[in-house]
Design a protein around this nucleic acid. Sequence first.
DNA 1: CATGAATGAGGGTTCATTCAT
DNA 2: TATGAATGAACCCTCATTCAT
Lengths: 189, 189, 189, 189
Amino acid sequence: MTESIGARQAGVRRNREALLAAAAAVFVEQGVQAPIRDIAGRAGVGLGTVYRHFPSRAELVTAVYRHQIEECVALADALRQEPVAPGEALARWIDAFVEFLVTKHGLGVALQSEDPSLHTLHTLMLDELVPACAALIEAGVAAGDIDPEVTAYTLMRAVGNLCILGPGYERAHARDMVARLLAGCRPTR
Amino acid sequence: MTESIGARQAGVRRNREALLAAAAAVFVEQGVQAPIRDIAGRAGVGLGTVYRHFPSRAELVTAVYRHQIEECVALADALRQEPVAPGEALARWIDAFVEFLVTKHGLGVALQSEDPSLHTLHTLMLDELVPACAALIEAGVAAGDIDPEVTAYTLMRAVGNLCILGPGYERAHARDMVARLLAGCRPTR
Amino acid sequence: MTESIGARQAGVRRNREALLAAAAAVFVEQGVQAPIRDIAGRAGVGLGTVYRHFPSRAELVTAVYRHQIEECVALADALRQEPVAPGEALARWIDAFVEFLVTKHGLGVALQSEDPSLHTLHTLMLDELVPACAALIEAGVAAGDIDPEVTAYTLMRAVGNLCILGPGYERAHARDMVARLLAGCRPTR
Amino acid sequence: MTESIGARQAGVRRNREALLAAAAAVFVEQGVQAPIRDIAGRAGVGLGTVYRHFPSRAELVTAVYRHQIEECVALADALRQEPVAPGEALARWIDAFVEFLVTKHGLGVALQSEDPSLHTLHTLMLDELVPACAALIEAGVAAGDIDPEVTAYTLMRAVGNLCILGPGYERAHARDMVARLLAGCRPTR
DNA sequence: CATGAATGAGGGTTCATTCAT
DNA sequence: TATGAATGAACCCTCATTCAT
């Protein structure tokens, strides 16, 4: 009996995971506005199951990206402990963030969307990612590597935008542009 | 007779202009994918009138932005004639481009959209804007103000992306980020 | 003054004729349900002009075919005077009718349509063509060439239907089928 | 569990059947081009349900008529086994075909329509009905009852056309005309 | 009389969301 | 819990028809 409950719970969790994977894949192919039905189909579950696990599209989007966002936060913490120059730390972190953004393409668009249904994602970024980035920037400023005018939120939005890809503007281009933006964030004297 | 025909033509033109204005406004509020009905309603005309003037959404979008695009092109030509340092000329031009983008916000999104219906707009940019920008960059490279690696298309896409605004990331922020990106486009030695 | 009135009237008539020609052509290409605009465009006149001359689609359709219908009537009269066997006369007349129907293709469909807007056409056929045909049949019956059961209206409807062409069922097939139908209308003894 | 699934499946099937019945009725009244909404309304279901069951109009049309088409095919097979004269067999089969056509009136029009959306129906007829008819004709030709010039496809198109009814041209008339057409298909000597 | 711009009803189609099983 | 059938709002687009000039 206990076992069957455990088995059921495992099934539930498996469904949730399958949905997250399917959603991530579909978001890459069609963007975050893809039909829910496509995600259900890809995950091999019914439509109702999607709604049960993620009552709103926003919750699904958020869940899909939360893990990576948390990884980014963790990386920021780690980099702050390491004995690297603060400017270098920030650069590496931004690199990781870019990697995250261009891999899950579609997120760039999502992050800047004013669509209220994606508000949660926005909040998540504000609450988690911005402070992490801010700490790195602060250190960079203190070390004279970064212009004190630069704010974490603005920089991240900018980086997010630069990672919106399209035909003729691919990963490498985004990476290059981000690098130049960062270069432009050094203090002007 | 001529007068009445003139009056009719004036009415037609007024409608067309009203539609362009309405479309521009609606695009700002809802993006370029806004329902055609909304645009018709805002312009105070029937649905059919929109289709008469702009048989496809792409034509409407293009018409809305064509004027400003042409202004940008003209400005680039003018700046090349002026006795300013090439780097300065590019900076001023990019400023004007940013102004254009942040004013008609929604265009940033439109420019990077892969939606085939917006292909025309993309083409317009490719055919008109990119060469104009390329000429300025070339001059900047020759003068040693700009890194030869920088290409016009990539830079414009990047600037376009940086001009996708949102709450907490307003015009001023976009302007600042673009300025820093441009700073990062100076030759590294 | 009188002249200019004459000139105007001539212009009006010319428009009417152009419209009939255009409508005939468009009906052949697209059927009798073709957009009025297409007909106006083909005739080189404005939309309003079509509506002035032919307030309803039915009137236009009727006008287009009236001439040919009258020709058919005249032919029937002529054939009755000629010294041919009545059966032969009917056959020849049906031949002409078929020719008319398959040339103006789309009419077959129009003739059998229950669309109330085409009611006039139906009436025209009933009033003009049916009596003409009936006279020929009557003579044929009298001569023992035609089964007395056969009625003009039914036969004409049948012939009309057999002349609805389509891919794989072309003029020649229609002609052949009509000939066989006619053969089947001989008296059974 | 099995029961409730069974109940659901039954409901689905009932819906499907209701749709087929509604479509058949609406086709009779308005023709196969009737608005999908009307069919949905008549069946008492939502619009989406029609699209779920029959993604395209063609599929709905085909489904409506498929059963009868298959019956016709089966009848042809049966008649070939029976000890009747081939000419008689063909006549009986054509009778059944006519019955089918005049009952589902609207199909006559559908069968001759060039509308690409009805292509499937056409194909169905070509693939199923024509061979069935051809076999009967062949036997008739061999027995000297049928003119070898007659082809199945042409004959069926002709019969189909003759079964397009209208006011003043009802079932009985169609039946009579078809009989005469068939009579005209005997060998001419 | 002729013109053609404007209108808006009408019909197709998609998809988010609910809910009975 | 999971399923997926059903619903219907929302968009798209076409064209018949009117009417000011």
